[in-house]
Design a protein around this nucleic acid. Structure first.
Lengths: 172, 172
DNA sequence: CACAGTTACCTCAGTGCTAAGGAATTCGGG
DNA sequence: CCCGAATTCCTTAGCACTGAGGTAACTGTG
């Protein structure tokens, strides 16, 4: 039996304690999970954006460039493919591509096979930028996990995998 | 040794596999955590908003009403207090209060002690609405956790507590 | 008691997203 | 082969937020 230190009360503990006083009839224990999930997400998001900003990017632009890069040669995808990967609406992708195209990081060309479709491709500048930003991004992610041991990381991943599946995150 | 089923490959597994093919020199394992964190947050957010919408609310409005409610009698807070609790800018709180005040769910009055300050209070309608919405909200949260056993929930909470603390979420 | 600095809230322009819908193109049943 | 349905991408209005900055009120030091 290892003696873990008693966790220091955090923001979420205080919220739960307040509800316990005001509405002792309700079981607010799920807030222990979802309150921290929201806080963690926002802190992670802010931290990642700091790294992106060092490369003149934001999360939306990085997402598009990274999706094209990891798709492998010939580094081409349709706006619909990018939309599904990013889980945003088509209008959002149009705007993201407008910005990236204006900066010369991607090109948009008409598809030969289907006149309705477009092909989005990384330019040399786009390749160079994502190749620069990606190692820094991963370093930031590694740093944010430094406080967890291997068992905690594995358990965290598996627990989130279950929740995402339960919530229909992989439905067709 | 319990035989766990091999997890089905999900969206994040595919992303990690793509990077493994395109950039085998990089350790992209942190994406197992942060990719799922992002997906989970968005799915949870969408699910919670569904419940809020059933009561004519969104996450921002619910947050303000719930913060006032759990503060206990006399159910009054300043915009600054709400701002710190919600982790948004003062401009966002002003707009949230504009909306809630227009709907008659909160009142904004000048403080007697400090002429710069305002006191935001729940109206009877505001009390009634949050009292209606809160049980449904908690039921939704309970439902989203149904797939986890007690050990998983506890481990998830503690792991997120550590990460939030590491990221400075409880700084001063 | 004067006044510079601080605090509390609001205002406003800009941003990126969604939801709804439009135009061009392709598909597929009769 | 034709034409309604489906698909693909773009357009637009509206929304909630941020960041910068403004106004009013308070504080404390000399």
């Amino acid at each position: 039996m290892v003696a873990y230190p008693e966790p220091v009360a955090d923001h979420v503990d205080r919220i739960v304690a307040q509800w316990g006083a005001e509405r002792p009839d309700l079981d607010v224990s799920p807030m222990e999970v979802f309150g921290r999930l929201k806080r963690l997400y926002r802190l992670v998001d802010a931290e990642l954006n700091r790294t992106f900003a060092e490369h003149g990017l934001d999360a939306a632009s990085f997402d598009v460039l990274a999706t094209l890069k990891r798709s492998g040669p010939p580094y081409r995808l349709t706006p619909t493919g990018l939309m599904q990967s990013a889980m945003v609406t088509s209008g959002a992708i149009t705007q993201r591509l407008d910005r990236l195209e204006a900066r010369g990081l991607v090109t948009r060309t008409r598809s030969d096979q289907d006149g309705r479709s477009r092909e989005v491709a990384l330019t040399p500048d786009g390749h160079a930028l994502i190749d620069q930003a990606l190692p820094d991004h991963l370093a930031t992610e590694h740093r944010m996990l430094a406080g967890l041991d291997e068992a905690q990381r594995t358990a965290l991943i598996e627990t989130m995998r279950v929740m995402v599946a339960d919530l229909g995150g992989e439905a067709e």
